[in-house]
Computed example of a mutant assay.
Amino acid sequence: MSVDIDITGLPPERIVFAPSPLAELGMTLHALAEPAHHPGLHGWVTATGSALAPDLADRLCEADFLWRTTFSDLMMPYAGLSDWSAQPCATLAEELDLLDRLNDEAFVKAALEFTCSAYARDVSPLTDPGTRAWALEMAAARGPRQMAFTKRLLADPPHVRTWLRQLFEDCDEAFFAAVWQRTRVGLAADARHKTELLRRKGPAEALTAISPAVTLEQHENSTRIRVDKMSTGRTTALDPATGPGLTCVPTSFGWPHLMVLHAPGWRPVVHYPVAGPELPRPASVDLLKQRLEALSHPLRMRLCRQLARTPHTTGELADACNVSAPEVSRHVAVLKKAGLITTRRRGRYVLHQLDLTTVARLGSDFLETVLR
């Protein structure tokens, strides 16, 4: 499985390496909301989380689903603008101005991607009652906060946009300005290094330097970037509606996530970590054996990939994996018996989620694969 980006005929100068303060803010918010994804950041998460003002912490909880799974495409607004010159900026304020330039349609669809588990409908929920009802039903499965946020979003997008910008500005004042001051130099140096590789040795060398999971495949009539992930997707860097181009954004907070923005109508973005911490070893050989046996089935690996990012119901897992709900239930039972997933009830929904603290003890290869 992989995410493929068609770059056939794309001039090398249209491949841009640049750090993004808004994307890095999204990654810090993700680490605060889901510290088990980032065991190497435990000290920073603890210190920063405990220092947050109660009002700011409460507001972050209102919309944490926008960055808890990974983070929303809204953190990369330059990719959603039909202007190739719109690229990552030097300051957070400049990128928030780019976010303001997104039209309501693009903003709402990007926000619904996580409030509604997965949003892939072409019809707008802002204008179509049926799509609006579907979006609210999907949000209800995620929980009351997602439901409340989705209602606000669909009823008054400008108000939610203003609220979200103020939230990001308050995060900048509270902790992110210091983070960006400390990390921007290293991220800029990484971007310069890869830009120089691109200029001197070509796209293959520059892209391979991002990660061994990123390769350039050249065939007689096509050239594509293949990002090895436990998901499948295709996009193009040649869409004239958005302006041909590919943006590669380094992050110092992102390991182990290697993410690809490949939404329709958005230019592709590869968001890659520049370094990663070590993870702890398994507690015992017997426990490791038991858990690895539970993961020996390819469908259970796919279920882990889904459950690593956000809770899912059995029905959602069945739809995502194109198998029956009883078959999913059998495999979920095996994973649960091995202590790899947790289950909780929310209203009439039963949600399953991967226990990332436990999974981290299996080793960095498995964790990095399911979160890639």
Rank of each mutant, 00 (worst) to 15 (best):
S117M: 09
S117F: 09
A118E: 07
Y119P: 08
A120Y: 15
P125G: 13
L126H: 04
L126P: 04
D128A: 09
P129C: 15
P129H: 14
G130V: 14
G130N: 13
T131F: 11
R132H: 15
R132I: 09
R132S: 12
W134V: 09
W134I: 11
L136T: 13
E137A: 15
M138C: 11
M138F: 01
A139C: 14
A139L: 14
A140F: 00
A140H: 07
A140S: 13
A141F: 14
A141E: 14
A141V: 14
G143L: 06
G143R: 04
P144N: 00
Q146A: 11
M147V: 02
F149M: 04
F149P: 05
K151L: 10
K151Q: 15
R152S: 06
L153N: 04
L153D: 01
L154K: 03
D156F: 00
P158K: 12
P158T: 12
H159S: 14
V160F: 01
V160Q: 09
R161E: 12
R161A: 12
T162F: 05
W163A: 12
R165V: 10
R165K: 03
Q166C: 01
F176A: 03
A178L: 08
R182H: 01
R182W: 00
V185P: 03
G186Q: 11
A188W: 08
A189K: 12
A189R: 15
A189H: 13
A191K: 02
A191W: 02
H193R: 14
K194L: 03
K194F: 01
K194I: 00
T195E: 04
E196K: 10
E196P: 01
L197I: 06
L197Q: 05
L197V: 01
R199Q: 12
R199E: 11
R200K: 13
K201L: 09
K201P: 06
P203N: 06
A204S: 13
A204W: 08
A206D: 08
A206F: 05
A206H: 05
L207K: 08
A209C: 04
A209R: 08
A209F: 02
A209V: 03
I210V: 06
S211W: 00
A213V: 04
V214G: 02
V214E: 01
V214N: 07
V214K: 03
L216H: 02
Q218F: 02
N221Y: 04
S222F: 08
T223L: 05
T223G: 06
R224L: 09
R224W: 07
R226D: 01
R226H: 08
V227M: 09
V227I: 14
D228N: 12
K229Q: 15
M230Q: 07
S231W: 01
T232A: 14
G233S: 07
T235A: 00
A237Q: 00
L238T: 03
L238N: 01
D239E: 11
A241P: 02
T242M: 13
T242L: 07
T242S: 12
G243R: 03
G243K: 06
P244F: 05
P244A: 15
G245N: 07
L246A: 09
T247P: 00
V249L: 07
P250S: 10
T251E: 04
T251Q: 09
S252R: 11
F253K: 01
G254L: 04
G254E: 02
G254N: 03
G254S: 03
